[in-house]
Design a protein around this nucleic acid. Sequence first.
DNA 1: TATGAATGAGTTTTCATTCAT
DNA 2: CATGAATGAAAACTCATTCAT
Lengths: 224, 224, 224, 224
Amino acid sequence: MSPRPARVLRGRAGDDPATALREHLIATARDLLAQRAVSTLTTRQLARAARVSDGVLYNHFADKHDLLVTALVRDYAERAGGFPATLPEAGSGNVEENLCECARAVRRVVGDVLPTAAGLVSEPALLHRFLRALHSDPLGPGLLIDPLVEHLTAEQHLGRLGPGDPRPAATLLFGAMVLLTAGELLDPGAARADDTRDTDDHVRSVVRTLLHGLAPGRDPSASS
Amino acid sequence: MSPRPARVLRGRAGDDPATALREHLIATARDLLAQRAVSTLTTRQLARAARVSDGVLYNHFADKHDLLVTALVRDYAERAGGFPATLPEAGSGNVEENLCECARAVRRVVGDVLPTAAGLVSEPALLHRFLRALHSDPLGPGLLIDPLVEHLTAEQHLGRLGPGDPRPAATLLFGAMVLLTAGELLDPGAARADDTRDTDDHVRSVVRTLLHGLAPGRDPSASS
Amino acid sequence: MSPRPARVLRGRAGDDPATALREHLIATARDLLAQRAVSTLTTRQLARAARVSDGVLYNHFADKHDLLVTALVRDYAERAGGFPATLPEAGSGNVEENLCECARAVRRVVGDVLPTAAGLVSEPALLHRFLRALHSDPLGPGLLIDPLVEHLTAEQHLGRLGPGDPRPAATLLFGAMVLLTAGELLDPGAARADDTRDTDDHVRSVVRTLLHGLAPGRDPSASS
Amino acid sequence: MSPRPARVLRGRAGDDPATALREHLIATARDLLAQRAVSTLTTRQLARAARVSDGVLYNHFADKHDLLVTALVRDYAERAGGFPATLPEAGSGNVEENLCECARAVRRVVGDVLPTAAGLVSEPALLHRFLRALHSDPLGPGLLIDPLVEHLTAEQHLGRLGPGDPRPAATLLFGAMVLLTAGELLDPGAARADDTRDTDDHVRSVVRTLLHGLAPGRDPSASS
DNA sequence: TATGAATGAGTTTTCATTCAT
DNA sequence: CATGAATGAAAACTCATTCAT
């Protein structure tokens, strides 16, 4: 009485067969999205990669964009949703080290999310649908910045950071990490064996600069 | 019996007609690139816009990508090449105001360059060729960061900024501007009438935070 | 352990469920055929409209065409079958008025049947099957003409029409009505508010011409 | 300096190469339209039949419908445009024979035009574009009826036909011919060796009936 | 060397039909 | 028998590239 399952799902059990293939398609799309840019993905490639016939897509999604946006949102939600948990506890250890750990967390999530996000820029229709989907989800545009701001605020309340609006500070830290990530993405040739070490030095110096500021008359060596 | 010049160039004199048409195509491509995304640009549109026949392109460039990359590089070179001149003179006026002006200059150039650059992500082949072209040109990847670093170094020598590596500071400032710009590009709906003012407030607060740092025990109100 | 009846027929009793669903599909197809053209009807639309699963069709009909032809024949049979009863009684009232009423009856049935029939032309396979089905049914091609011929014959026997073969007369009347109907179908824009009146004037003048003939030496005004 | 000609046109000379392929496509479409119904024609079939690549169509026409409508109009124009010339001269020979000749002319043109026209019914979009094209051409919807009306009028002025509106008479004659034609088109099996003879008898009896009318008190034998 | 029509592989999407359940 | 998802062969249309002139 149930319809025939897709060949590719033969042998699996326990799933709701109605949603199993839908999920399979989303998963396949995410896989491909991690390799190629959105706009280079064809429905044919998708079907081939999912080991499924050309038409299935349209049994589960309104059109190609519908599947793509769904996969994109799912991807973003999972990657960005885990971000807050990767931030260190405010008050623990030492402030600078904490900030470095924050910066590394940002770098990780940006590394995950940036390639896909950048690919969206050239597909205005897709971008629009993606942003609408994000806004109607609990995933707001502040999903990544806000936890950082909260961390800084918490450290302020603990007296471990000075007063002042933490949001520009978060922007500075976040932006610097975006830049480092983008640089590496654009120029993979620069990635060397000692890459991690170098990168971490970058992170640390950025954090220190942010902590002590550029203005003269302060002794940054005090906390190093 | 010299070869027939393209119709669109009839009447011009003095130029080498061969390079004239090449330049004309590059200029047209740049014009279109400022309007549409790279991936949506067809050779036909290009030919029509250049008032030239569909095939000429292949007499002057290896293929469509070759023309596009050339136009992209040219565009980047001009926009980014003009950037240093838009930075204020170190030592003039007041340091904070100078930094704000630097930040605004960064925002302008990023606003010019980011949309096109982001569009490249979805065309991996193009992106690769673009990056190779950039590296073989004098236009290194530091084209935008280095002038900023120099400005900061100059202010340090004048004693108007504290000691320390100016490069992470430049990264922080630059990254924050990228973030602001990207936010506006992605969410044009957030652009309001008071947009300029808001944005400038953002810029100023970012600069102040960068100047005074996050560490406690410093009175940021002193210099505001 | 009798087979499960289709959801849409649950609760009905007394019918043979096998033929009930068959009839339900035919009825649904007729409904849709009255709205859309044959060639635009998909099996999916049919199944949805019948509130039945996509595959049932193939349990009761050889294929889509089989169902469609069956529905088409059924439709034609009912519309054309009702036609004789809509003709006026020979001998009643006045001959001209009776002929007008015949003409109107023809127009009605043609209006019902022509759109569907014309739509068949673009589906040669369907058309062929349809015609074969018609011929094997008691529904011959004379189904519409013959009753008209009989009416004329009856009026002849009553001495209210002159002698001569009534079949060409029926052809003339029928053909004129087909023309009027086709004209309106092809050019719906010509339909005005006073449409009914105009059309009826057309019908009347056609009937009068048919009654009195074109040959000279006859005073058509005598019977007007 | 001229672009490369289509392979299929190699060797021909004298034509304007720009319009040669356009005409070739129209001609091919007309050929196919004479065999298959409009809606069953695919762009692929068209290209194959024209011995031309799949895409050429779009170099000369906005889309498939554009080509089809153009072919349809061209076809109609040529077939229907020649119709008036095939009518006999009013006043020549004998009236009845003249009317029979008119009827035969109508039958010919209807036989040419009806199959194609009927196929249009199931393609509302195409039908609409076709009708619009017809109306903007000198080819009005009266193109076929009007010459017939004029013939009758001329015969009236010569005193060879009685008075009265000739238009309903034209409608009757035309409609009867449409019916005869449609019957033969729908039921090609009825076409026999003696077909022409039979058909001609039909035509003659229809014309006589039209001439003498149905009303009693007239002696139709007088003119037979 | 400029022209611009011809080429044909490639794109997204539809849909009649099948078939495991 | 009913179910309805899977199938895959089209469909219309696009576009980078070629090439006779």
